[in-house]
Simulated assay, not measured.
Amino acid sequence: MELRHLRYFVVVADELNLTRAARRLNMAQPPLTRQIKQLEVEIGTTLFERSPRGLALTTAGQFFYEHTLQILEKVNTTIAATRRIARSNLLMFGVGFVPSVFYGQLPQLIRGLRQKNNVELSLVELTTVQQIQALKAGRIDIGFGRIQIDDPDVEQEVLFEEPIIAALPAGHPLENSQPTLTELAKYPLILFPASPRPSLADVMLGLFRRRGIKVNVIQEANELQTALGLVASDLGVTLVPEQVSRLKRDGIVYVPLAEKSITTPIICSRRKEPPSAIMRSANEILDVLVENRRSGRYPGTRGICEKPLL
């Protein structure tokens, strides 16, 4: 399968008429028809329903269409960014992160790197599993997650352990307490992300399982914001890393747990290779931010990254 097949498919899906689609693509209709049939054979399913009145997308075709649009948009964005970098001689640095780390020191790292006038930053929200794959493929250069994953091509460093707290609907019976996991388990539990796994959801489930506590998982959400919205709707409770409490939202209260030893790590993932100039600069900023976190200080990045990259 080539990009041209995807582009042909999108035009045909937009027009739902092979003659008009061929005209838009400046090609004859018979070769376009062959290309679409080849695509269906390669995927292994019919993408279009054909009738005397024209074409219609099948259910699978509609799914493929929506995701193909995303793929082509990403390709076009990547090409445009590549051309911009080539024109300006910028150095590209990709950062992957799970949403729950974005309310602590990560923004300070980003600000520090943005002060470098020869760096183009790319921020990508990815689970830890996805970060490992993206690092190996070269799509990102550093990742921040919460899951330990053994991979020979990637090194992981635990920056620090972060307390776990509970997010409750406002007015919840446990609002003015420091509940135990046993007390929380009496209420419906909301987990995130739902996929891909393993993820923070498995870490949270493990906290209960290791203590022999049964839970009622009423809903799994793909995103942190969705999970918090469900909590605010009084659907259940959830567990979040402490820094998420900086995200203020109506209808939600955050309370510490009775067991202060319950934590989750913030893990930095990098490729196993000699660090580039940008990576050395990022590591210097990280060292300061981690030390500030451990000592209870949260200063800005002013004065942290004065060294040039090159």
Rank of each mutant, 00 (worst) to 15 (best):
H5N: 15
V10R: 15
D14V: 12
D14N: 15
L16H: 05
N17M: 06
N17R: 11
R24Q: 15
N26V: 15
N26E: 15
A28I: 10
Q29L: 14
P31E: 06
R34D: 15
K37S: 15
E42L: 14
E42H: 14
G44D: 09
A60Q: 12
Y65I: 05
Y65V: 07
E66Y: 00
T68A: 13
T68H: 05
K74R: 12
K74Y: 08
K74V: 10
V75E: 14
T77G: 10
I85Y: 02
M92G: 02
V95F: 01
F97L: 07
P99V: 00
S100R: 06
V101S: 13
V101Q: 05
F102W: 02
G104T: 02
I110G: 01
G112L: 03
R114S: 03
L121K: 02
L123C: 08
L126F: 01
V129L: 10
Q131R: 00
L135H: 04
L135R: 02
I140T: 04
I140N: 03
D141Q: 04
F144K: 02
D153E: 12
A170V: 13
E175D: 09
Q178M: 13
T182I: 14
L184N: 02
A185Q: 07
K186W: 08
Y187W: 14
S199W: 07
M204G: 04
V215H: 03
E220W: 00
E223Y: 08
A227D: 04
A227R: 01
G229S: 07
L230Y: 07
L230A: 03
A232R: 01
L235I: 09
V255P: 05
P256M: 11
L257H: 10
I262R: 09
T263K: 10
P265G: 08
P265D: 13
I266Q: 04
S269Y: 03
K272A: 12
E273T: 15
P275L: 09
R280V: 08
L289K: 02
S295F: 00
G296T: 07
G296M: 06
P299A: 12
G300C: 04
G303V: 03
L309P: 02
L310S: 13
